[in-house]
Design a protein around this nucleic acid. Structure first.
Lengths: 106, 106
DNA sequence: GCTTACGGTAAGTCATGGCTTACTCAAACG
DNA sequence: CGTTTGAGTAAGCCATGACTTACCGTAAGC
């Protein structure tokens, strides 16, 4: 359920960039917007999406608002991906063996 | 690099649905389109995106074209997420401790 | 060889969403 | 208190992308 928002959130390159910067430590909005090629309001909007996806949290710090990574959304994504991981490896293995059979025939 | 396409690919609900069906085993295009609320060409287009993201592979089987999950794209996504996992947990832990300090003050 | 099933491509429509500027509000600072 | 700094919201623009129908290629079956 919730992981769907997380995938959509990280689908955007600018949002991934914001997220990567936050991985290096908590940052304020203006601080994040500093090195980015988009305006500060744009960063604000991206942070809102990341927050709703459970990927970041924020708390006021004086006049500033400091954002940091939230492990929750990250964990949900990992759990969802892991659901497919084993099945995917098994399917891949089956394909490899089928190809081997074909080579034996040739 | 490549994982960026994978996140964008799985951001779409219909594409996730296709992907989940493929997790239960290889399927043909028409077979996949059967239970979905969209047309067969739409499914074809989705499969193209998933393929370019390294999330599925396909091979002809007579007149049909059979798709199945490719562990490659999945693996890249997992690797990317894992890069942040430890940092996220550490940040979360730091926040909890900071909150505890506040409570001690109160 | 003609027809029928399967599936990718083309073209066009419509909604979503990422961006901007302008504004509003709240907290610090003098 | 007035000003300045920090940040979210509103409104509008424009590109992208998810979908449709119509069409084209190709492999199988009589």
């Amino acid at each position: 359920m919730a992981y769907s928002n997380a995938f959509a959130a990280l689908a955007d390159p600018t949002r991934r960039e914001v997220f990567e910067r936050l991985a290096q430590g908590p940052r304020s909005v203006g601080d994040l917007a500093e090195g980015l090629p988009v305006s500060r309001p744009a960063v604000s909007q991206h942070l809102k999406v990341l927050k709703e996806a459970g990927l970041v949290t924020d708390h006021p710090e004086g006049a500033r608002r400091v954002y940091q990574i939230d492990p929750q959304g990250l964990g949900q994504m990992r759990a969802w991906l892991d659901r497919f991981w084993d099945a995917a490896l098994a399917a891949f293995q089956a394909e490899v063996e089928r190809d081997d059979d074909k080579e034996d025939e040739a």
